[in-house]
Amino acid sequence: MQEKYWNYMVQIKAWTFYLDIYAEDSYKWDRRINIYGAIASSSSIAAWTIWRNWSFIWAAIIAISQVLTAIKQYLPFGRRLKYLQPFIEDMKLLYLKMEYDWYKVAAGELSETEINGLLYSYKKEYSGIESKYLKEEILVENVKYKNKADIKTEGYFKNNF
């Protein structure tokens, strides 16, 4: 039962790293879109007058900027940030509670039944957290993020346990 507890604790930490990487990438994309829109809208008029020969390029830049502005609310990046940040915080808290109890589990202070009860309560808490934040949203699995999260998880447990 100790091994099950340990494996679930590692899984929660890995999931937290994964969500953190997902949020970071969503933030980068959201910021890129905002910067592109700001630069395009503020510099296009000045550039248009300077480079009249290439006006079609600036027209395209303005058009793309307008389309991005119109569809931005439907892109997932900004929306994700609204629920990923509190989701990550709740996951970090869950992990801290599990790590705190791990020492009792590892030291043999708890019976198999008590460990099972503890594990059940954490799985139930995780299920509540997940349904709270992913009720209407879907996170498409990203293998690149998973690999990064696995590396971070391995490093974390290597350095801390």
Rank of each mutant, 00 (worst) to 15 (best):
A106Q: 12
K124M: 09
W15G: 05
S44W: 08
L96M: 12
W29E: 08
I115W: 02
S127V: 03
N7P: 02
L139W: 02
I115Y: 01
K132V: 03
F161Q: 06
T69Y: 13
D25P: 00
E141T: 09
I21A: 06
G78K: 14
Y8F: 15
K82C: 01
G78P: 00
L19G: 14
I12R: 00
K148C: 07
Y74V: 06
K158T: 15
F77M: 05
I88A: 02
S127K: 12
G117M: 09
P86Y: 03
R80I: 00
Q2T: 10
P76R: 08
G37C: 14
F56T: 08
D25L: 07
L119F: 01
Q85M: 13
I64D: 04
A106H: 09
F56M: 06
N7K: 15
W15V: 11
R79D: 10
I12K: 05
E141N: 11
N7D: 14
S26R: 04
Y133T: 00
K146P: 02
Y8P: 05
S111L: 03
K132T: 13
R52W: 11
Y27V: 03
T16V: 08
E109R: 10
L84R: 01
E99D: 11
W102S: 07
P86D: 04
F161D: 07
K92G: 00
L19A: 12
I21L: 12
K13S: 06
A40T: 07
L96Q: 13
A47G: 05
E125H: 06
W6I: 13
Q73T: 11
Y8K: 09
E24K: 11
L110M: 11
I115P: 05
I33Q: 04
L110Y: 06
I21C: 00
L84W: 05
K158D: 09
A38K: 10
K132R: 13
M91E: 08
Q85Y: 15
E125Q: 12
F87S: 01
E114V: 02
G37L: 11
K28V: 09
K92F: 07
G117L: 11
A38Q: 04
G37N: 10
G155C: 10
L119C: 01
T49M: 15
Q73D: 10
K146V: 08
I62Y: 10
K72N: 11
S127M: 06
E24V: 04
R79Q: 14
I71H: 02
A70K: 14
N159E: 14
N147P: 02
Y36E: 07
L93P: 00
K144W: 09
K132C: 06
A59L: 15
W54D: 15
E114N: 07
F56P: 00
L75G: 01
Y5M: 05
E99R: 08
A60M: 12
Y36R: 01
D150S: 08
M91Q: 10
I61T: 11
K72T: 05
P86T: 03
E130G: 00
K28C: 05
D20R: 10
L96F: 13
Y5Q: 02
N159H: 09
